[in-house]
């Protein structure tokens, strides 16, 4: 595609107390991509996602959204689903889903009453059907299973029709069976709403199954005397399928791709660096 990228990351670096977590991250993402992000824990992939959300700010470099710098705080154009605490525990399922409408409609009370409230509840009927939570409409999140809570979280994040959806290990706490259902739900919504998706995950199979593009975060430089001297960056950027999601990749292709990703695990430089690698990740945890 020759169009301008939806999101452009340029020379991004992030330091905590002068310790680099991320450095020299460069990335252009087209509209409609589904980027899955993997990497060892502590490699800064969640930090990267939080920076896309404006929850954290770059120490160096910049992130452009539609050619303009990201706003300095979270805004409705970027939806988010966290692993936990994504939904409001004091609201029922239905109340969680109409909350965004209430914010929009009523500036001071942030609340709808009477017929307006009824209309808001009716307007989410389709969404309810989609996520299959209709029977639980009047339950509180604490009364739902983990999978149902995440369904609700995804639906809630989509109410404002964000152009970018950010997912921070959204299915990390779910059973494998439930995960497959969630994958279908997410892929369906992604195709329907033509969003650009960034998803951090621990599960490499999930990353290959869902993404159109796989980003692997890792440290490329190691100093054995100073394990914290260098931050991580994007070490592998693999296109998995066309951004429109048209062609499904063949099993052999997956196998090959996973093989390629596993090749990232052995240290790229010296023979000793395996030990450094372990040391570095130990220190990060």
């Amino acid at each position: 595609m020759s169009t301008a990228p939806k999101l452009s990351v340029q020379g991004l670096a992030k330091f905590y107390d002068r310790i680099p977590v991320l450095e020299r991250v460069n990335l252009d993402v087209q509209t409609g991509s589904f980027c899955t992000i993997v990497g060892a824990s502590g490699c800064g992939k969640s930090t990267f996602l939080r920076m896309l959300l404006s929850q954290e700010h770059a120490s160096r470099g910049q992130i452009l959204l539609d050619g303009k710098p990201l706003p300095p705080e979270p805004t409705p154009d970027r939806g988010i689903v966290f692993q936990k605490y994504s939904v409001f525990s004091h609201l029922t399922v239905a109340e969680n889903l109409i909350l965004a409408q209430e914010f929009e409609a009523s500036r001071w009370s942030g609340r709808l009453f009477g017929s307006a409230r009824k209309a808001a509840f009716q307007s989410i009927d389709d969404l309810f059907d989609r996520i299959g939570l209709q029977p639980a409409a009047n339950k509180y999140p604490a009364q739902l299973s983990g999978g149902m809570q995440q369904r609700l979280a995804i639906a809630q994040a989509l109410v404002k029709k964000p152009s970018i959806l950010l997912l921070d290990e959204p299915f990390g706490a779910l059973d494998p069976g439930i995960r497959v259902d969630m994958h279908e739900l997410l892929l369906g919504l992604w195709k329907e709403l033509s969003m650009t998706v960034f998803m951090v995950t621990h599960d490499i199979h999930e990353a290959f199954k869902l993404g159109t593009r796989l980003l692997v975060f890792d440290k490329i430089r190691h100093d054995p005397q100073a394990p914290h001297a260098y931050g991580a960056t994007i070490t592998y950027d693999l296109p998995l399928k066309s951004p429109t999601g048209g062609t499904l990749r063949s099993p052999e292709a997956i196998a090959g791709a996973i093989g390629a990703s596993q090749a990232t695990k052995p240290p790229p430089f010296s023979q000793n660096s395996k030990a450094h690698d372990t040391q570095a990740s130990d220190n990060h945890e």
């Binding site: 979270p74 409705p76 966290f82 936990k84 914010f103 609340r111």
Partner: peptide, 26 residues
């Protein structure tokens, strides 16, 4: 949880709306 506050921001809440609909009930 910071997550809830961020979520409210991404749903377009103002500070006052977050106080009345999120912070106060929590």
């Amino acid at each position: 949880p910071r997550e809830m506050i961020i979520k409210a921001e991404t749903l377009g809440a103002s500070v006052w709306q977050m106080v009345t609909r999120l912070v106060l009930p929590q």
